[in-house]
Amino acid sequence: MQPWRPDPGLSSPPSGGATRRPGSRLRRWGRGARRGLCLLGLWSACTAWAEAPVLTLGVVEDSAPMSYRGPAGELLGFNIDVARALCRELARECEFRPTRFDTVLEDLRQAKFEVAAVSLVITPERGRQILFSRPIYRSMTVWLSAAGRLPQQPQVRVAVVGGTVQAALARRRGWHVVEATTNGGLASLLSSGQADGMLAPMLTVFSQMKKPELQTLGLSVQPYDDPELRKGAQSAAFGIAPGRHELKSVIDAALERLDRDGELDKISSRYLPFKVN
């Protein structure tokens, strides 16, 4: 194999042989320039693909059906699929980071992730700490207990997940609160007799009621209507790191497209018993 040598025609005129036509060098330069531009374009496209910006999202890992680990440890759930659809819509790569209900706001403030893919009920108090995306679905607070018991009754122990609006409400009302760190913990509190009822978002209650240990307790479900919860508590949204208004704009626009195009409905049908939008 002969070693590669540069084409002498590119740097100096040929010393002999066939005479080149006057325009040939210009044409070769033109071809070279075009190839260069093509390569540059490909390089740019490859770079853009390889360097697709990452969107970091905080997720709760045991909050079925919103976000949980599947049998193989994979992340599943309504919020997870919405987050993935959101990343596709934004042409960004999703990077999920674990969080918990009771730390999610602090994690957002500390910029551990940009978006909390967690069903956060929109409240004015939270709104002062973080940004909210446009509402993703409408929720309501449900009281699950044996028939005839109410959370405001003095002897009733109310199970809540720490960091939720329900926990905040229960504390403000001065109820007997038993706090769990995860949704799964709520069922344990009830089945073990440590709590008499749970105050939780409707989809959490729906998910927990699938557990046999709760089905045998003969619990009844009733919506809990409270004026304080009614103040914006009907809507759940993703949280966005404070100050990231430009990120909120693009996320809101993307969620609006996903909602309009029916993508949110498709995801909802996958995990939820009815249309919650």
Partner: peptide, 15 residues
Amino acid sequence: QEALVIATLLANHPS
């Protein structure tokens, strides 16, 4: 019971 829970949630849902 699951059907009743869903029906209850549905009937009380804002939608």
